[in-house]
Amino acid sequence: MGDSQQDRGKGQYIQWSPQESKTLINLLLDGVAQGWRDVNGVFSKFTVERRILPALNQTQGFSSGFGWDPNTKRFTASNEVWDNYFMVNFIMH
């Protein structure tokens, strides 16, 4: 996942580096130790989106570039991010 989003086309798989995998495993272990799992022992989507992915993005330096504006209830991104998104998802097909 260390490669940029621009290098990926739809359906392509890029294997995580050992460091990225190690970081994710450590974050999950920290989550278990902190009691972030539900009664069934599963991490909820909310926990993954709010606690694990932000930490993973921060430590590994990757992100989709999209954000969320809670006031307008819309996705936010720079023009470059939108241009890349449209090129990969619509023009290249």
Rank of each mutant, 00 (worst) to 15 (best):
S64Y: 07
K73A: 08
L53E: 07
A55Q: 11
N71A: 13
V42N: 08
D69H: 03
A55H: 04
P54T: 04
K45R: 14
F75C: 11
V39F: 12
F46N: 13
G31E: 04
L29P: 00
R37L: 11
L29Y: 10
Q60M: 15
E80M: 04
P54N: 04
F43E: 00
W36K: 12
L56S: 08
R74S: 13
V32I: 15
D69I: 01
F43I: 05
L28A: 05
R51H: 13
G61C: 04
L28C: 11
F46T: 14
K45T: 14
A55R: 10
E49S: 07
T72K: 13
F75Q: 14
R50V: 09
R74F: 10
R50G: 09
D38F: 02
T72Y: 07
Q58D: 14
F66P: 04
I52R: 05
G67E: 00
T47G: 05
K45E: 14
I52M: 00
T59S: 14
V39G: 13
G35I: 09
S64W: 09
P70T: 08
S44F: 03
Q34M: 13
V32D: 11
L28D: 08
V48R: 07
K73N: 10
R50P: 08
A77T: 07
K45H: 14
A77I: 01
Q60L: 13
V42A: 05
I52K: 05
D38Q: 05
D38C: 04
Q60C: 14
L53R: 11
E80K: 11
N40M: 08
V42E: 10
N71Y: 06
S44G: 02
A77V: 08
R51D: 10
V32S: 02
F43Y: 02
F43D: 00
A55P: 08
S63V: 09
Q58I: 04
E80V: 08
S44R: 05
A55I: 07
W68L: 03
Q34I: 06
Q34P: 06
F46I: 11
T72M: 08
R74L: 14
G65S: 06
V32R: 10
S44Q: 02
E49D: 12
D38G: 05
L29V: 14
G61S: 07
A33D: 15
S44W: 01
S63Q: 12
V39M: 12
E80N: 10
N40K: 12
G67D: 01
K73V: 06
A77S: 07
R50F: 09
S44H: 04
K73G: 06
Q60G: 00
A33R: 14
V48E: 06
V32N: 08
K45A: 12
D30H: 10
Q34L: 15
D38E: 06
V42H: 04
N71Q: 13
G65E: 00
S78W: 05
R37D: 08
I52G: 02
Q60N: 09
G41Q: 03
Q34K: 15
G67L: 05
N57F: 12
E80I: 01
F43N: 01
N71L: 10
S63A: 13
G61Y: 02
Q34R: 15
F43M: 01
F75E: 12
G31C: 00
G35D: 08
K73Y: 06
S78F: 03
P54D: 02
K73D: 03
